[in-house]
Design a protein around this nucleic acid. Structure first.
Ligand code: MN
Ligand code: MN
Ligand code: ZN
Ligand code: ZN
Lengths: 139, 139
DNA sequence: GCTTGACTTGGACACTGTCCATTGTACGAT
DNA sequence: ATCGTACAATGGACAGTGTCCAAGTCAAGC
């Protein structure tokens, strides 16, 4: 039983086979799958699970704060079960590999008050881009 | 004649009515329009301009480094003619207003060497989110 | 075991963006 | 000024991602 599934059950979720496999697929470190990747892997265990259910379930997990959406490209959103420790992402521009990284300071504090235009700034999203070692080596 | 159009002509662009109106629509400060918004405004001056041409033209401007793509939400890409001064964006989570902002330091330097995993890091994208004064006031 | 409201399903639909064959045109050459 | 040609514009088909809905199914409490 994954920690994620445990937390969801504590929140009163009705436990279904579909939700179980989605939670299981998302279990682990450095996981950043698209909804359709989640669907493909979930279908490996539960062949008839539908796309709509995967989208619904992921959306609910995001609403509950147990999964975060990550947008590192303009294609599909990615779903990240590492929701309880703020972090940023480092993306290879060539192969798409994504690594969790941590900045040396709080990026929010880098925005001076006179650059906030009266906004109540509550969140910042940082994506670093470059080439991973393999791609930089021409692999 | 916009500065943007001037620069494009210097690069040997064949000048067409369509490219002119797209460049004119993109002229100005704090402009962050989607492709379809550009198309709608361009069609105000040149009714028969096609969606494909707007997409082609914007893509060419991006390739030439005269316009930058901005992804502040998971809907449409936005096109920013402010391509010659690096900056970040501050977005209202409620109404979508986008402001250009400048951080106090270079965000790239905030990623320590031991968090780079051997990547050649060349770029960083920072998006601040919050509520603009109007939305915070409940307007 | 029933009952019931929550959950799942498949498919239609919307939005953004790409592609391509055809038609049109800007611009250098004459 | 006209022409020829390579480059550009067009519109419609198509693809990827995500949402929505009506109908069927099921988990969980009684
Ligand atoms: Mn992550
Ligand atoms: Mn901008
Ligand atoms: Zn790579
Ligand atoms: Zn606002």
């Amino acid at each position: 039983m994954s920690d994620l599934l445990e937390r969801l059950r504590e929140r009163g979720w009705r436990m279904t086979a579909q939700r179980r496999v989605v939670a299981e697929v998302l279990d682990g470190e450095h996981v950043h799958l698209t909804a359709d990747e989640v669907h493909a892997r979930a279908a490996g265990r539960l062949p008839e699970i539908s796309r709509a259910t995967v989208y619904n379930t992921l959306g609910e997990m995001v609403s509950l704060g147990e999964v975060v959406e990550v947008t590192t490209d303009r294609r599909a959103k990615r779903y990240d079960p590492n929701a309880h420790r703020p972090h940023q992402h480092l993306v290879c521009a060539r192969c798409g590999t994504i690594r969790d990284v941590h900045t040396s300071g709080d990026p929010l504090s880098q925005l001076p008050a006179d650059e906030r235009f009266g906004f109540t700034v509550s969140d910042v999203e940082v994506t670093y881009r470059g080439l991973c070692p393999d791609c930089a080596a021409g692999a």
